[in-house]
């Protein structure tokens, strides 16, 4: 690993901290009654509305179909995720310092594995919100569930729900890309040496 690569790893590690500044996922809802739009932003440590009262208003709308209230303080993942991000960042900095390629592989692998776990967890969370409906809900549409899409767009009654990664996820993506670039370069060099 040369100096340039070590600096790149350092940058990649610090990019992860960007998830404290930017949300990682976004859900935008559109309905005839909300021409101005309404939506949620999912951060590593909180869930907020696009504008100040959106979360409150989405909970109000969801009660018609019996969805549980989204109560960020009761979601354990939001408490754990900041620590995971900090640990991964420290891990990355360590990799840059000790210049060990195996550690780099371990780092990238752990980021990817944790991301997959995260996405799966998000899917389960969405599944639960969409399916675990209050039986006394005023509006019951036979066969209808309200799980938001993991990625993409879905029509849920009068709401068009669009779910996409946000800036925080793109930053994680950059971290992975940078690391992979260094790994590929490394193995190219190894192959040339061995040839």
């Amino acid at each position: 690993m040369n100096k340039k690569e070590r600096i790149l790893i350092l940058i990649a590690a610090i990019l992860l901290l960007g998830t404290f500044i930017f949300p990682i996922w976004k859900i935008d809802l559109n309905a005839p009654q909300y021409p101005e739009g309404i939506g949620l932003r999912i951060w590593i440590d909180k869930i907020t509305g696009v504008s100040e009262y959106d979360l409150n208003n989405i909970n109000k709308l969801n009660h018609y179909i019996g969805m549980k209230e989204i109560e960020p303080s009761s979601i354990p993942e939001l408490k754990i995720m900041p620590y995971i991000v900090i640990l991964l960042t420290l891990f990355g900095i360590t990799v840059a310092l000790i210049k060990n390629i195996k550690f780099l592989i371990a780092w990238v692998a752990s980021i990817i594995i944790l991301m997959i776990i995260g996405l799966y967890d998000y899917y389960i969370w969405g599944y639960d919100y969409g399916h675990d409906l209050n039986p006394t809900a005023p509006i019951k549409v036979p066969g209808m569930t309200y799980q938001p899409p993991l990625i993409g767009s879905k029509q849920l009654l009068n709401m068009t729900s669009v779910s996409l990664p946000d800036v925080g996820s793109y930053l994680i993506g950059f971290t992975i890309l940078i690391s992979c670039y260094i790994l590929i370069n490394y193995y190219k060099k190894v192959r040339i040496k061995n040839a």
């Binding site: 009262y53 409150n56 208003n57």
Partner: peptide
């Protein structure tokens, strides 16, 4: 009757 509207929606 003191009525407070708890809505915070436009």
């Amino acid at each position: 009757f003191h009525i407070t509207n708890l809505e915070q929606d436009w």
